[in-house]
Amino acid sequence: MLTQKSFSQSNEGRLYLVPTPIGNLEDMTFRAINILKDVDLILAEDTRNTQKLLNHFEIDTKQMSFHEHNTQQRIPTILKMLEDGQQIAQVSDAGMPSISDPGQELVKVAVSQHLNVVPLPGSNAGITALIASGLVPQPFTFYGFLSRKTKEQKEELEVLKNNPNTVIFYEAPHRLAKTVKQIGSSFGTTRKMVLARELTKRYEEFIRGSIEEVQQWIAENEVRGEFVVMVEGNDHPQVTTNNEWESMTINEHVQKIIDDEQVKPTIAIKQVAKLRGLSKQEVYDIYHQLEQ
C-alpha cells in the first residue's frame, strides 16, 4: 500500500501532469501557467507545438520531447531527475496527459518508485463534449480511439454494443465516415449519436441525431477538425452485461472474450485493457504469465 502526500516536503521531486487547452488558449489556468514557469523541465509530446503555447504565455522553461516513440528511452533519465529533487511537468499537445496521449507509462513507473505525481485539473475533450451532448452524462464509458484495422474495430464494437452507458470515442476527420458506419453496423442506425468538433474554438459545432442522420450529415458536409463521437447506451441489451467482467480475474476476462467472440488472444487482450483502463502490456504480461 502506498500513501502520497503531494506537498509534504519542499525538496522532493514532483511530476506535474499539466493539461493544456484543447483549442482556446484562454482555457489555460493560472496555476498551470505558473507551474510551467516554475518547473525545471517540461516534457512535451511535440516540442514545436508546445513552444507556441509557451511563447503565448511568455514561459521560457526548457523542454524535452516525450512521446510514444521514445517513452522507454526517456523514462530512466526522467526518473533520475525526479529522484534528485527536480520538478518536472508533462504536457500533451492538447488536453490531459495519459488520456489518449502519452503519460501512462511514466506515471506508473514514478508511482512504483514512490515519487510524487501531482495532477492539475483542466481541459478534456471527452468530458467537455459530453456535458453539452444532450445524452445521459453518467454513467459513461470513455473508449478513446478505436482500432484502425476494420476487423479489430468490428470486434471492439461488438463488445461495446450492449453497454448501457453513453460511450465516448475520439476520431480523426479522415476516418470519421468509416468509423461511424461501423458503429451503425454494430449498434444499429437508430441509436442516438452526437458529434462534437472544434471544441472551444470559433467554429465549435455539435451534430445531434440518429446514427443514420449523422451518416447523412457526414456524406453532405466537408469533414474537418478532430471529433468526439458519443453514442447513447443500449437500454435494452440482448445480453445482460452489468460489467460482469468486474468479478473476473484478468485471465478469465481475456479467455471469455476469446471464447465468446472467437478472436485471437491479442485482440482480447486489447479489449480487456481498454475496458479496465490498463495498458496492453500489463494485460499481456498477466495473461501469458498465467498461461505458462
Rank of each mutant, 00 (worst) to 15 (best):
P19H: 11
P19Q: 11
T20V: 12
I22M: 12
I22N: 05
G23E: 11
L25S: 13
M28W: 10
M28A: 13
T29W: 08
T29R: 09
F30G: 05
F30D: 09
A32C: 09
I33C: 08
N34A: 12
L36D: 01
K37Q: 15
D38M: 07
V39D: 03
V39I: 14
D40F: 02
L41R: 01
L41H: 03
I42W: 01
I42L: 10
L43A: 07
A44N: 04
A44R: 00
E45G: 05
E45H: 09
T47M: 11
T47F: 08
T47S: 15
R48C: 06
N49G: 00
N49C: 04
N49S: 11
T50H: 02
Q51I: 11
L53F: 07
L53D: 00
L53R: 01
L54T: 01
L54N: 05
N55S: 15
N55L: 13
H56S: 14
H56M: 12
H56C: 13
E58P: 04
I59Y: 13
T61K: 10
M64V: 15
S65T: 10
S65A: 15
E68W: 07
H69K: 14
H69Y: 15
N70C: 11
N70L: 12
N70E: 11
T71M: 14
T71R: 14
I75L: 11
I75T: 09
P76C: 04
P76F: 02
P76W: 02
T77F: 09
T77M: 06
I78P: 08
L79Q: 03
K80P: 02
K80Y: 07
L82E: 01
E83L: 13
D84Q: 15
D84M: 14
D84C: 13
G85Y: 13
G85T: 11
Q86T: 15
Q86P: 03
Q86K: 15
I88D: 05
Q90W: 02
Q90T: 09
V91H: 05
S92P: 08
D93F: 00
D93S: 00
A94F: 06
G95C: 11
G95W: 01
M96Y: 00
S98W: 01
S98Y: 03
S98A: 15
I99T: 08
S100K: 06
S100Y: 05
D101N: 08
P102H: 12
G103V: 12
G103F: 03
Q104R: 13
Q104L: 10
E105Q: 15
E105T: 14
L106C: 04
V107P: 11
V109G: 13
A110F: 04
A110T: 02
S112M: 06
Q113I: 05
Q113C: 13
H114Y: 10
L115K: 00
L115E: 02
N116Y: 05
V117M: 00
V117I: 04
P119M: 08
L120T: 04
L120W: 04
P121L: 12
S123G: 14
S123Q: 09
N124V: 09
N124K: 03
N124S: 14
I127M: 09
A129H: 10
L130M: 10
L130C: 07
A132I: 07
S133W: 00
G134H: 05
G134K: 07
G134S: 08
L135S: 03
V136T: 15
V136P: 07
V136S: 14
P139N: 09
F140W: 06
F140T: 06
F142Y: 15
F142K: 05
F142P: 04
Y143V: 06
Y143G: 01
Y143W: 14
Y143N: 01
Y143L: 05
G144V: 01
